[in-house]
Design a binder for these strands. Structure first.
Length: 771
DNA sequence: GAGCAGGACTCAGAAAATTCGCC
DNA sequence: AGGCGAATTTTCTGAGTCCTGCT
């Protein structure tokens, strides 16, 4: 990729050489400084945004692409096949050394072709198909893969047999649960150690290696789905009589139950910043008044005159009391929640017990939007069974609604993955109960996501050269698309769908960028053609970045900004819909977000390659891993506020190092003494003493090194959140392969939850895996 | 046949809960 | 050993993306 855009946030050119180890961190720090933690104000608004989006003239070229429905159809077919393709690749996975080779080849041959922009698009389509075929032949051709596949098939058969047997034996979920509960109780009484082991073993057996099974039809998500329905939030418990609400400083006022409940929502949040915001207060007060009795409405006229302090204190105290509970009490509480988890937290999906992600309905409360949300403070209503739609298989035990209630609906739709849903009253959108990330349904999708990103790797060079060509297109729309795609690729920006004005915080992504969000500098910081981005992205997290761009991009941006107001759309001829349908034509399954996944994963792989030194010890290798991870987090703009305790804990760590240094000196001195002693006595005892001291010294040295690494890591990690990218953007197989290759235990990079989520990758990736 | 709303799903950081590690 | 603060993990639910099906 000689001049393809680099996926580097600072855009300072090539990052891959090992020499630049700290490049990412430095840039991150720099950007961090510039950005500040506060969120950008948003007074200036889109007075006249209408100007843009409506003008969707259709460029002839786009039309010509669409004119062959035949092609479209085949493609559609292929895409579905693509799902299967993923599956077929599974067999080929283990020997991904060969995989990589083929990939390279494919990449190379792909590059050779495309020259003219016109014919390019078709070539791309073809390439997409070619790609699929390649994948298939590859899987077939590889011998070891074949063998392994056969083996897997056997295993699979056995597995499913086992599963069905088990099902027959155990029958419906409820039965099974009771037995397990029994087991558990027993285990508490007897020696925990053994039982723990047993339990683990059992769990091991229970693990469903779905990735070894043939993938089923795409649309149908399950054949069997059985569960207990959601666990409902506990009902409101009235305040004790001695906790009072005051209005206007007068004598206490007894509130009706409903009014009181809502008051507690506000009271609980009293020391949160939210309650200082006017929008929050207004929204709350409006919704609160609506639920009041007429009499209450008459009296309570202003929020300022409401005194929630006693109520607030009551909850603070209650919280503390709960924390101060004796051990046994706490244990009891925990057992109760465990029981609930056991009963409601799992479902049966196609014969396997799967963990549910969120099995509780959301409790009522006050809506907490992020950033400057116009609806913050509004009352989130309690979800009742009458609001809930249940989804499960026909022949299953239909969940029983709480007594005296019924479900809104029970349906049996196996083309969706959710178990229950309800409509939430703030945005009037649907909420779902779905499975845990460790489940087959989620895992398979995740895997597929990374496979799509890997396919992008094969065509990305062509796509890049195509959009570079499009910078000079005669069509405005095409140019805008090309520049937007360049940003999405180079800076890993999100697509940026249109949002309804006034319904949510004013945030943007690439396609919804407005003129006010970028500044152009012909020269800045000694670099030419600089673009300064400053906008609020998802979750109102500020994106601030100064990037040098190529000259045509710069010129185009200037053009796009001509005669526009700050509030106007930068890409007024572009929508995520048209961008994505264009991308879909270039490669089946391709959409804007795939670039984020692709660039994140490829960055990790490159950085790991550049930063890992096989000679290093595990701690140093982990530092390298974290740095690579960090590079991705910076790219994706995953930030966190510096922890409040950062300085303090840093000092503590430094103190520890000092102490360790002293220990080291002492140990050295002791060793010397012991040696002298041995020289004098020459007996076994003194020799043993020397050995002992030597060992101690080694241990201390190791500890010291570990501490030093910790400091570096911590400092560099100050304001960057690694979790999101690790969980959502980095192909876990890259990490697994790295661990295997360099002898790092997987537990060092993935905790238990993460290992569960990525079980498929841990099981299937070997050390040669190439993204 | 297009454009739009709504549905289904992924991704996101804050906050709560739990574990860790030190004295 | 046990208590305490910090670190890590888990939970929670809001905020995106993308696609489909309807008009």
């Amino acid at each position: 990729m000689p001049e393809g855009p680099r996926a580097s946030p600072g855009g300072e050119g090539e990052e891959t050489e090992g020499g630049k180890k700290h490049g990412w961190a430095e840039k991150a720090a720099k950007r961090q400084k510039e950005k500040g933690q506060e969120r950008k104000g948003e007074e200036t608004k889109k007075k006249k945004r209408e100007g843009g989006k409506v003008r969707h003239e259709k460029p002839p070229r786009f039309e010509s692409l669409k004119e062959e429905p035949e092609v479209e159809k085949t493609e559609e077919g292929e895409r579905r096949g693509g799902g299967k393709g993923v599956k077929e690749e599974e067999g080929g996975e283990p020997e991904s050394g060969g995989d990589g080779g083929i990939k390279e080849e494919r990449e190379g041959s792909g590059l050779g072709k495309s020259e003219s922009v016109e014919s390019d698009e078709k070539v791309k389509v073809e390439n997409g198909l070619e790609d699929e075929k390649d994948t298939k032949t590859k899987a077939k051709g590889a011998k070891p893969a074949k063998r392994r596949k056969a083996k897997e098939e056997n295993a699979r058969e056995e597995k499913s047999k086992k599963a069905s047997e088990k099902l027959e034996k155990e029958g419906p979920a409820q039965k099974r649960k009771t037995t397990e509960e029994g087991d558990k109780k027993k285990s508490k009484k007897t020696k925990t150690g053994e039982n723990e082991k047993e339990k683990k073993k059992k769990e091991e057996e229970d693990k469903w290696k779905w990735w070894e099974e043939e993938k089923t039809e795409d649309k149908v998500k399950w054949k069997q789905l059985e569960h207990k329905g959601p666990y409902f939030a506990p009902l409101y418990e009235p305040l004790p009589d001695n906790v009072k609400f005051y209005y206007d400083g007068k004598s206490p006022m007894k509130l009706s139950l409903a009014t009181e409940e809502i008051a507690t929502f506000y009271a609980k949040m009293l020391d949160h910043e939210y309650t200082t915001k006017e929008i929050f207060q207004n929204n709350f007060f409006r919704d609160w008044k609506e639920e009041m009795t007429e009499k209450e409405q008459e009296i309570i006229q202003s929020l300022d005159k409401c005194d929630f302090k006693e109520i607030h204190k009551y909850f603070v105290d209650k919280n503390e009391a709960r924390k101060a509970l004796p051990k046994e009490e706490k244990q009891k509480l925990k057992e109760e929640t465990d029981k609930i988890q056991e009963e409601y937290g799992y479902c049966i999906l196609d014969g396997h017990r799967e963990k549910i992600g969120n099995f509780k309905t959301e409790p009522p409360g006050l809506f907490r939007g992020r950033g400057n949300h116009p609806k913050m403070g509004m009352l989130k209503k309690r979800i009742m069974p009458e609001d809930v739609i249940i989804n499960c298989s026909k022949d299953s035990q239909i969940p029983v609604p709480p007594e005296g209630h019924k479900w809104k609906e029970v349906r049996c739709d196996n083309t969706v993955t959710w178990l229950a849903s309800w409509t939430e009253n703030i945005q009037n959108s649907l909420k779902y109960i779905m499975l845990n990330p460790s489940s087959k349904l989620k895992g398979e999708k995740d895997w597929q996501k990374y496979e799509v990103a890997r396919r992008l790797k094969g065509v990305v060079d062509k796509i890049r050269s195509q959009y570079r060509g499009d910078w000079k297109s005669r069509e405005m729309k095409t140019r805008q698309r090309a520049v937007a795609l360049y940003f999405i690729d180079k800076l890993a920006l999100r697509a940026g769908n249109e949002k309804e004005e006034g319904e949510t915080a004013d945030t943007v992504g690439c396609c919804s960028l407005r003129v006010e969000h970028i500044k152009l500098y012909p020269e800045l910081d000694g670099q030419e053609h600089m673009v300064e981005f400053d906008f609020l992205g998802k979750d109102s997290i500020r994106y601030y970045n100064k990037v040098p761009v190529e000259k045509p991009v710069f010129k185009n941006l200037k053009l796009f900004m001509q005669n526009k107001d700050p509030g106007d759309d930068l890409f007024d001829r572009l929508s995520t819909g048209s961008l994505n349908s264009y991308l879909q034509d270039l490669m089946p399954g391709l959409s804007a977000k795939v670039f984020r996944t692709y660039n994140a994963s490829i960055t990790l792989q490159e950085q790991l390659k550049a930063l890992t030194n096989p000679e290093d010890n595990v701690a140093a290798k982990l530092l390298a891993y974290n740095r690579a991870n960090r590079a991705v987090a910076v790219l994706c703009n995953h930030q966190r506020a510096t922890p409040k305790t950062f300085e303090k804990s840093m000092q503590a760590l430094q103190a520890k190092i000092d102490a360790k240094n002293q220990q080291l000196e002492e140990a050295q001195a002791e060793l010397k003494r012991a040696k002298a002693d041995h020289k004098a006595k020459k007996d076994v005892k003194s020799k043993e003493a020397v050995e002992k001291k030597k060992k101690l010294l080694e241990k201390i040295k190791e500890q010291l090194e570990k501490l030093n690494v910790q400091v570096t890591d911590k400092e560099e990690n100050k304001q960057i959140a690694l979790g999101t990218s690790k969980l959502n953007y980095l192909d876990p197989r890259i990490s697994v392969a790295w661990c295997k290759k360099f002898g790092v235990p997987i537990e060092k990079i993935y905790n238990k939850t993460q290992r569960e989520k990525f079980a498929w990758a841990i099981d299937m990736a070997d050390e040669d895996f190439e993204f």
